[in-house]
């Protein structure tokens, strides 16, 4: 006899979901509102989406955000995988604990501090703020997420596979590409998607490190909202939520797949 969740469980799950998602749902509904007034329902319309696609400023910001996301996620993935391999396979090298602490610290570091310190660094070295400074900043703070995901996979990866590759005449660096990488690729892909989502989402660090011509979508939305909430913002937010939701779904499916194949 299988019993479902109790009444208490149902209520608490329901209350939790309402608390988390009612505001988002409201925003999504109002993005289809025909009225300019945000809180008066005047019938279904997609006019704000049409307006949005004609709004070159918002579309420009979206394009910049996507480019920053893809480039920074790719850099973060390469560096994060390298850090994970060093931590999982480097043995007990000198300074390993310090290194592992430093890799994971940005996970709990307040974003304001990360953003501010990066800003100070860019000013100190005389780097003009723009597209590449945001990319660098995002790569830095998303790198640790990639490292966490990949290291978790590497820790359950049979080291005998790498030894077997070497035993069969494969130099160690080549063994990584021939054997290790093909087997951890789902985790690497999951790390990349996670880094992309984090980059698309980020407001604080981007605010500190962006310059003229590199205003990201979250920054554009935030500044627009300060002048009053327009339905257009609701529409762009709905699109952003959709993009992030797709990203999370992809992340979930690839990271589940990484445990699926039986280990031989």
């Amino acid at each position: 006899m299988r019993r479902g969740p109790s009444v208490f469980n149902r209520i608490s799950i329901g209350a939790g979901l309402v608390f988390l998602y009612a505001p988002i749902l409201l925003l999504m509904i109002y993005s289809f509102n025909d009225s300019r007034a945000v809180n008066v329902w005047a019938g279904f319309s997609t006019r704000w989406y049409t307006a949005l696609f004609r709004d070159s400023q918002l579309m420009g910001a979206l394009w910049i955000t996507l480019r920053i996301g893809v480039v920074s996620a790719s850099i973060a993935t390469v560096l994060g995988v390298m850090a994970a391999v060093a931590l999982a396979r480097g043995g007990l090298f000198r300074g390993r604990t310090l290194f592992s602490g430093m890799v994971y610290a940005p996970l709990v570091m307040p974003e304001v501090i990360t953003g501010l310190s990066l800003l100070l660094l860019f000013v100190a070295v005389g780097l003009d703020r723009g597209f590449w400074t945001v990319v660098m900043a995002h790569a830095t703070f998303t790198l640790c997420y990639v490292a966490v995901v990949v290291q978790a996979r590497l820790s359950t990866f049979d080291t005998a596979l790498e030894e077997a590759a070497q035993d069969l005449g494969c130099p160690p660096w080549r063994a990584f590409f021939a054997v290790t990488l093909p087997n951890i690729i789902p985790a690497v892909a999951a790390g990349w998607v996670l880094a992309l989502i984090l980059s698309l989402d980020d407001l604080v660090i981007a605010s500190f490190t962006s310059g003229p011509g590199s205003t990201t979508l979250p920054m554009r939305i935030y500044s627009a909202v300060r002048l009053g909430v327009s339905p257009e913002i609701n529409a762009v937010s709905t699109l952003l939520i959709g993009a992030v939701a797709v990203g999370i779904a992809v992340y979930g499916s690839v990271s589940r797949r990484r445990t699926a194949p039986a280990r031989a």
């Binding site: 005998a160 596979l161 030894e163 077997a164 590759a165 005449g169 087997n183 280990r263 031989a264």
Partner: peptide, 29 residues
Amino acid sequence: PPHKRPVNMMFQSYALFPHLSVAGNIAFG
């Protein structure tokens, strides 16, 4: 280094490459 020694090992866990077929595993070396 291990990859240049004229010895080969059969591992206790067999350590077959999960992403390669039987023929692919044998062809690896």
